[in-house]
Design a protein around this nucleic acid. Structure first.
Lengths: 200, 200
DNA sequence: TTGTTTTATCACCATTGGTTGCAAAAGCGC
DNA sequence: GCGCTTTTGCAACCAATGGTGATAAAACAA
């Protein structure tokens, strides 16, 4: 129901009616509404990890594994857009924690798997990188960010064929990491402009 | 107040108290709570465009303009994280429209500016691209997605220096677009796996 | 049959977004 | 100043929501 109508639109009484109970009974299983979403989010991330592992298992060559899992992540997100939104961009509990953060114990392994995968690629392909961990972040952020934008509508209008953008992104990333330019050690704050570097 | 505490946490009565009125008075100026956010979002996007133009004006060389506006977008987003979230990931109105979509008339110019900028870069630098518009999307999505992940906490744990990731991303993108590999025309659906290509 | 624990419900609460009718106030022509 | 209209603000109210006991029914154990 959360996936169909969104978290806010689903009322506890509606859930109760769906399962043939009164809404009060739900509080014997969950401390509050938010924890229902947290439970579901945990399952979603579990599926995401399963998906990641299944794809990785099919591709022994690291480079192909990197490509396939990157595509797989995006496919998974666009296949379950509302779940993805609920997990990472959904409501916060009274402590300002989102479900994705709350179950970070589960989410972290996914990211760590990816970092390991990228290290494998760097070794196997002899990538000329020095800061592999930063480059790994770059790749991951790019893919994850792309998945996000494809799931959340209205950020960018008139997007062409999504698959094309995904492939172009991966191809561009790959071309980029093969060169992996030395960072220019640029000083952002060199210009005496007004306040920048706000860090929230 | 929305920027401080978040949309849901701010009650209309709290707003009314802040301005020294009753909450009923607000409905003489806005049809509902959501439209207050829409109005503020409109201002936010206006600032974003101003910011974009100001940065662009300072950099006559297209390549530097591309770099500077890319950094500027991310800086703006991380400097106003809650506004950014409210605009693009905030609540939907009863028609399922987010503020960012609602004021798309304002948001679209920003994207179009960027596309034009990228075309300038491609011409000026003699980029070997064929599908400039797709590559432009790629760059834009990557930067925008990166900004998103830096604003929404909890998606990726243990991020290293944010500035480093930004610079690495831009450098990688730049290295990539200078090569701009021919897309492999990969057939995602070649493998007979189960349902993919879900398009929401 | 007893006593105990689980399960579900009903009635209730405070708060929220939103509406309505009415009175005070502000404008305005004179 | 006076009478009239329009604007502005408010108190009271509404329905719905998340959440909370007190209590009764059911299940279980002896």
């Amino acid at each position: 129901m959360f996936a169909d109508r969104g978290y806010e639109a689903v009322t506890l009484r509606a859930i109760a009616k769906e399962i043939g109970y009164t809404h009060a009974v739900i509080y014997q299983h969950f401390p509050d509404k938010w924890h229902i979403l947290a439970e579901l989010s945990s399952e979603t991330i579990g599926l995401l990890i399963q998906n990641f592992d299944a794809i990785a298992a099919k591709h022994p060559a690291p480079k192909e594994r990197l490509f396939a899992t990157s595509r797989g992540l995006i496919q998974f997100c666009t296949a379950h857009p509302q779940q993805f939104r609920n997990v990472f961009f959904g409501p916060e509990n009274r402590n300002g924690i989102r479900a994705g953060q709350y179950i970070n114990d589960i989410g972290t392994p996914l990211f760590q798997r990816f970092v390991q995968l990228f290290f494998d690629v760097a070794r196997d392909e002899g990538l000329p990188s020095r800061d592999d961990i930063v480059v790994a972040h770059t790749w991951w952020y790019t893919i994850f960010g792309l998945a996000t934008l494809m799931v959340i509508q209205g950020v960018v209008p008139d997007l062409p064929d999504q698959n094309l953008v995904v492939e172009q992104t991966i191809a561009t990333l790959w071309a980029g990491v093969q060169v992996v330019p030395r960072l220019p050690k640029r000083a952002v704050s060199k210009r005496p402009g007004r306040s920048s570097a706000a860090k929230q």
